[in-house]
Design a binder for these strands. Structure first.
Lengths: 168, 168
DNA sequence: CTTGGAATGTCAACAAGGCTGACTTAAAAC
DNA sequence: GTTTTAAGTCAGCCTTGTTGACATTCCAAG
């Protein structure tokens, strides 16, 4: 792939030149664009943005989640999330049910239409990810995830690890 | 790291469950936040944003680059870039010189103050990247970059690969 | 039972940073 | 000499983030 510069092969001593680190930084920048490109197209067709994608994704992941939980995962203000959530509810993609135990809480779930959008978005994104994995090979997949997890802030890593495995 | 599920070890057949792909997608989302967190803090202190960071980074990388070149790397409109560039020039971080061969072009370079900001930003980001690499280990670093490159859109991959190695 | 605080929602205002469209200037290319 | 290109600028719009203020609901502690 034209940038297979021989890495230090020793386990313990990791010689990381500024150049190698910079390449990693730039790769992250360019790759994130590819990562969001396909969903962005789908969202634009339907008049939504990335903020909607994020909300839909995590509601799908944790059906019945509360607004507060979503806030801490997404790391935005409630006003910001509320604007997005309101349009999704108005458009009939998300359902907000008052909690039974604690009636202050709203439990969020996707409607059929919401699931349809989520499916379209995640299909596109999964296809991109699958292609990348296939091109890079099985060992690469391991390393990819390991570095990403190591790059997360503590809070985010907690959230990431807390998202339950729907049985891998 | 709590999610070391045994991958298919065969080179050719890569069993990628939706679950594995989703984990990769979420890792990418959370990791990008960590990736930008440190620079964001520095930028905020000085009244700049990510757009300024990107401009400063690529001007540093390719001193004397033209506005048009920067536009295609960053993938934004010239109006958007211009707004950012103008403040950087006004603040004395970037210098814009009329081209000698083609006088329509402006060649952009960092001033001392610009280099100082770039240094602060890239030091922070490199530290984060170095820590992540160290935690993940040498093999992981390879895989990380390979997957990222494979995830890029064609245009971005061209730009990425075209950025000259300042001798790694 | 009352009250304090937590969870939610809403309104208003603002800023960054994307976007489009229209237009100017200067210079290169033809 | 005309057209095209590079750059810059103005105006206006959108999304998505931010604060601050405030209302409502309702659990829970006193």
């Amino acid at each position: 792939m034209a940038d297979q510069s021989a890495p230090p092969s020793s386990e313990s001593l990791l010689f990381l030149t500024d150049e190698q680190l910079r390449k990693g930084i730039e790769a992250m920048f360019f790759a994130y664009r590819g990562f969001t490109a396909d969903p962005d197209r789908i969202l634009e067709e339907r008049g939504y943005g990335r903020a909607h994608h994020r909300a839909v994704h995590f509601i799908h992941r944790s059906p019945g989640t509360t607004v507060n939980n979503l806030l801490s995962i997404l790391g935005v203000t409630k006003q910001s999330l509320n604007r997005v959530l309101r349009t999704l509810i108005e458009d009939g993609l998300v359902e907000s049910k008052v909690g039974t135990k604690d009636k202050r809480e709203r439990h969020l779930t996707l409607t059929d239409r919401g699931r349809e959008l989520e499916r379209a978005l995640s299909d596109a994104q999964r296809n991109r990810m699958r292609d990348a994995y296939r091109k890079a090979g099985p060992e690469a997949v391991q390393g990819f995830r390991q570095v990403l997890v190591a790059m997360m802030d503590g809070d985010m890593r907690r959230h990431y690890l807390a998202l339950k495995d729907a049985g891998q």
